[in-house]
């Protein structure tokens, strides 16, 4: 039997080869076929989940709720010390504080759901909400930065990690207005009911990766320092937290 592994479409493009290495390692460990499916966007991934074509997924925290509560997925592991935090940035010199923003701003954003949710929450103190803004959809965070630099958007939503990795040349033209410090929202590795029988084995494999050199190398290739176990209650806690943020 061949299982399907999906990676949240918000992964950094330069890590794609790392995920293929991870997939090869996983097949060897399980002695089973695992097909790595790279979905182009969240809609494509959600369609695949709805059709039962995902058995193991490294999921965006925003999707964990749907996966656990509607599709019966079980949490396996989470990356250590790798929370998803968001940054709202503008063109350097345009604004200095969120409270100074007009309500009718244009926002450049990707389709990364947790970053967009946190971003909108951080605009609430300025009385800005979905009804007052214009959205400029972008393929990735570099494109978000370009729109800000060209003055085509007032603010942009970034995954903090991605913002921090922009080149110095780009960053000097941008100004981070606010950075989230939530610490409790993170990606998670989940298994479908179809693969639930492998959950314990997967947890052992993932959490042991950081204890040997070859495992550490693979983890580095996917931008994770180590995996730690994630209980159902850990997932439920994060789902409850996300639930409070979605309206």
């Amino acid at each position: 039997m061949t299982y399907n592994l999906a990676i949240s479409p918000d992964f950094k493009p330069e890590l794609i080869s790392g995920w293929f290495i991870f997939n090869t390692w996983l097949q060897r460990q399980l002695g089973e076929g695992v097909h790595l499916e790279i979905h182009q966007d969240f809609k494509e991934q959600h369609d695949a989940i709805d059709k039962g074509k995902v058995d193991l997924i490294y999921a965006n925290p925003f999707d964990v709720s749907q996966l656990v509560r509607n599709h019966g997925f079980t949490p396996v592991a989470k990356p250590s010390a790798k929370p998803d935090e968001a940054i709202i940035a503008c063109h350097a010199g345009a604004f200095t504080e969120v409270k100074d923003l007009p309500t009718n701003i244009k926002i450049a954003q990707t389709d990364t759901p947790d970053v967009n949710t946190i971003g909108m929450i951080m605009l609430e103190p300025a009385d800005i909400d979905k009804t007052t803004v214009e959205i400029l959809n972008c393929d990735n965070f570099v494109v978000v930065a370009k729109h800000l630099m060209r003055g085509e958007a007032d603010v942009g939503f970034f995954l903090a990690e991605s913002f921090n990795e922009l080149s110095a040349l780009v960053k000097k033209d941008l100004f981070p207005l606010v950075s989230s410090q939530i610490h409790m929202i993170h990606h998670a590795m989940l298994v479908s009911p179809n693969m639930a029988g492998q959950k314990d084995q997967l947890e052992k494999l993932f959490t042991a990766m950081s204890s040997d050199q070859s495992g550490q190398k693979i983890l580095a290739e996917i931008g994770v320092s180590q995996f730690e176990p994630m209980s159902t209650e850990d997932a439920e806690f994060m789902i409850d937290l996300m639930d409070t943020l979605t309206t």
Partner: peptide, 10 residues
């Protein structure tokens, strides 16, 4: 669970 965030001053 209770989550509190920065409110609109208005």
């Amino acid at each position: 669970t209770s989550v509190r965030r920065e409110p609109s001053r208005k």
